[in-house]
Design a protein around this nucleic acid. Structure first.
Lengths: 299, 299
DNA sequence: CAGTGGTCTAGACCACGTG
DNA sequence: ACGTGGTCTAGACCACTGC
């Protein structure tokens, strides 16, 4: 992460334009020479061995071109050059922009597509992933009815119980990577499916990124909450981590889920992250799993 | 799945040897000709449109070469040509064997490596994935201590409560894809970590694939159960699906986990699959989540 | 029909691990 | 020093989509 432009030792094919390379300035000046290669190699070794006491042992001695391209694409995504749902430039255009071959751009995009940051559509183009599309709605919701293969989203209801500004306690601050007593938004809601209250969620959001969030605005928005965050606050959730336990609800929680306090529920703690693994949401969910289950696939 | 050798319309580069291609016999005979291409194309269309009432709508009109290679590699894996932990032939050798370019073999292997069926090791070779390696042990166990980042495997204990042959009931038969009252092996065990009974598992295995499994043989084996299945029965688990609920244990289960019947636990139902999505294990686990949690990553 | 992503090849060279 | 996987390029062509 410290060096964005990393030394590499690949030869040039000499067909490249002589101008400065946006990716790796050293690269454009190489000529085919064993001596240069050797000196180059020792250069790499020196780079690595000059940081012997690093705690992180995964310092790559060099970064492949396509990884550098990937970082640049990532930066463009993060800076909002291309918005969720939009097309990004074609592979050929990007290849020209970065002065690399189409295949190299392709490999960078491949990885971003695998991480669900981009979506390819053959014959059309490559798009920035979004939580707004029907296809990927409820991407982070792994709850399934025991009977069917998907939640009946048609008959789903959302009820906002609470929505207010507050100060981060220790736990929330740690999860969101902010300071204790920093301003955060707190939100409590109940999701019902087919008329059955199934999910109770407490949600904390960093105040600085979600200024102006109100219960009304949230209620007015149809569609997934993460899609709302994208359009209203430019916050794009990229991945999430969950910790699951089995617990008994307290009396308030039980009442909101319309069960007794002796009905076990899933406790699902989630930290949702945007680009650069930046935490932007802390969520504590209670899932009623009488007629449904949390579905997971292990590879 | 019905047609292993699928028609394709790519031209030959004419540098290929004229002999029959192990992959796609039509391919080797192509010459650059618009007419042939057109007839080929209509051929593909005919293939698709001749099966109009198929329920599965994802019938590809053609299969890329690398996908065909992938299927062949998969077949070799399934038939045991290369055993778990062994090296497979180098990319160059495979390219020669299949009469395709190294890049095409590479793409096939890439996908298999992404699915954790193969493991690449730069400078060494490509290996068949195994559950025996330290690196990937407990690959399917997502339970983590609340405090640390990994289970302390050193202080883990396994206690086999029961191990006997029985007949599949409805539920087990459905999960394993066998007939009701078919012979199955039933196994109950408790896993303890740092002296705390944490996991209680009921396991069912299809009788025909696990003949000769005994409590003694299982106890004698050090290491993960799935590694034992590999070496003792040639059954390689490739992926698994889990359904998670929160429940209260019955009195027997509670006693085995040394908790009361009012302590909620995670119910984790798992179907483990070998090649071709063939179910080879049905497992009902109870996880005590007082000091640990089920960890999941959402992408 | 034009433009996009997808496949395939051939060849050159690099990084890495092992002997 | 050798062989393996990993990167990069250039070019040809195919499949798909939308105008």
């Amino acid at each position: 992460m410290s060096a964005q432009i990393k030394p590499r030792t690949y030869d040039e094919t000499s067909k490249h334009k002589a101008g400065q390379n946006e990716i790796d300035s050293k690269r454009s000046l190489k000529t085919k020479s064993a001596i240069e290669n050797i000196s180059d190699f020792s250069n790499n070794v020196a780079l690595v061995s000059s940081q012997p006491s690093q705690t992180t042992l995964n310092i790559p001695s060099f970064s492949p071109l396509y990884q550098q391209i990937k970082e640049l694409l990532l930066k463009s995504l993060q800076q909002g050059e291309w918005q969720p749902g939009e097309v990004i430039p074609s592979e050929i255009e990007l290849a020209e922009r970065f002065q690399v071959s189409q295949g190299t751009v392709r490999k960078a995009i491949d990885e971003l597509a695998n991480e669900n940051l981009l979506m390819r559509r053959q014959g059309v183009g490559t798009f920035v992933a979004t939580h707004s599309e029907e296809r990927v709605q409820y991407r982070f919701l792994k709850l399934m009815p025991d009977s069917k293969d998907t939640l009946t989203k048609g008959s789903s209801e959302r009820q906002i119980i609470s929505c207010k500004q507050t100060l981060a306690n220790e736990e929330v601050a740690h999860a969101l990577g902010v300071n204790k007593k920093d301003e955060v938004l707190y939100l409590r809601r109940v999701l019902s499916f087919s008329g059955v209250a199934t999910i109770l969620e407490d949600i904390w959001l960093p105040g600085h990124s979600f200024k102006g969030l109100t219960s009304d605005r949230l209620s007015a928005y149809q569609g997934p909450m993460y899609a709302f965050f994208e359009t209203a606050f430019g916050v794009k959730m990229v991945r999430a981590e969950e910790k699951i336990k089995a617990i008994l609800p307290d009396s308030v929680q039980a009442q909101l889920l319309a069960v007794s306090t002796s009905t076990p529920v899933l406790s699902v703690e989630r930290i949702a992250l945007t680009y650069n693994n930046n935490p932007m949401e802390f969520r504590k969910g209670l899932y009623l799993t009488l007629d449904c289950h949390y579905r997971n696939e292990l590879n």
